[in-house]
């Protein structure tokens, strides 16, 4: 019965099915086949037997990951870097947008916008190239730190582990603050001006207006952005870390993403690496589902 209906549907919407077929095929090959490939995480992979017929080892890879020193290290580093970028990197665009919003000269605001959006368009590799140059032994930032007495002698900061996290967070801030403010600025310009007029008539000064009109105006946007951020908490910026870390800083810099890359592609320990990757995907999925659910409930807005 259903099959007959389906057949008729396919005949009627033939064009549409032809158009959607390549997309379904793409998703199947590049998204769903790899998901099937996750069985690798439970196998001792040998190229001869392939992904689906290698020797089954059960949870061996997971146990060896969870009991190794790396587990605590990479999880801690991932969480610390994500939390730092959340706590510092999240409010900055909001503050920046609020400050820009107070500027009354259009030309000045536009200039600052154009300049501050610019770092967003520079590639990770170039950013890292600039960072490496600036914090090298003779680099600008190293010299500055020596001059103001933070450092005793000029050293390459990327080889000193306590400096790694500040370097990551500050460079992210440099790159992301301006562009991150776009959405907030748009929301701010959408706030009804009559609300400010009414507040003035009621005797509210600027600060009170900011507190009672501006902030409630952008609060929904802030909530949604925050929830989306939490959904990607485990996705620490591993392609940037990959360019900046050295064995000397693995202690603080090695995150799940970089660990999976090293184990899998450099050491070619496929099964183990797939297991760590699966762990990451599962936690990431839980975070996404939860944050998306919360977002749907609170803001009546959801990502999906």
């Amino acid at each position: 019965m259903r099959w007959i209906e389906l057949k008729r549907d396919i005949r009627m919407n033939k064009g549409l099915y032809v158009l959607i077929l390549p997309i379904v095929l793409f998703l199947f090959i590049f998204n769903y086949l790899p998901m099937g490939g996750i069985v690798l995480a439970f196998e001792r992979f040998t190229p001869k037997n392939g992904v689906f017929f290698s020797e089954w080892v059960g949870l061996k890879h997971f146990i060896s990951f969870f009991t190794s020193v790396y587990f605590v290290r990479v999880l801690k580093n991932t969480l610390i870097l994500s939390m730092l970028s959340l706590i510092i990197g999240f409010p900055m665009p909001i503050i920046f947008a609020l400050m820009l919003n107070e500027v009354e000269q259009d030309w000045f605001r536009k200039c600052i916008q154009v300049v501050s959006y610019m770092p967003n368009f520079i590639s990770t590799v170039v950013i890292c190239g600039i960072i490496i140059d600036f914090v090298a032994t003779k680099g600008l930032i190293t010299q500055l730190l020596v001059k103001i007495g933070v450092l005793d002698e000029a050293k390459n900061l990327l080889t000193i582990s306590p400096y790694f996290r500040p370097i990551m967070v500050l460079s992210d801030l440099w790159q992301g603050t301006g562009f991150g403010s776009i959405l907030y600025l748009a929301t701010l310009s959408g706030i009804n001006q009559e609300l400010y007029e009414a507040a003035t008539i009621d005797g509210a000064n600027r600060w009170k207006q900011a507190w009672h009109v501006t902030l409630p105006g952008i609060a929904p946007t802030i909530t949604i952005m925050l929830i989306m951020r939490i959904g990607s908490l485990l996705a620490a910026n591993s392609d940037k870390i990959l360019l900046l870390y050295t064995p000397l800083t693995y202690e603080v810099a090695d995150v799940i993403g970089t660990f999976v890359y090293r184990k899998g592609l450099i050491e070619q320990d496929y099964g183990y690496s797939a297991a760590v990757g699966l762990f990451n995907s599962v936690i990431g999925m839980i975070l996404l589902v939860v944050s998306n659910g919360v977002s749907r409930k609170i803001g009546d807005t959801s990502l999906f």
């Binding site: 998703l27 998901m35 490939g37 592609l265 995907s281």
Partner: peptide, 16 residues
């Protein structure tokens, strides 16, 4: 939608 929540990860994708 499922692909937005979950993916195979680096190594399985690489092997495919």
């Amino acid at each position: 939608t499922i692909t937005m929540f979950f993916n195979g990860g680096l190594i399985p994708t690489y092997l495919v």
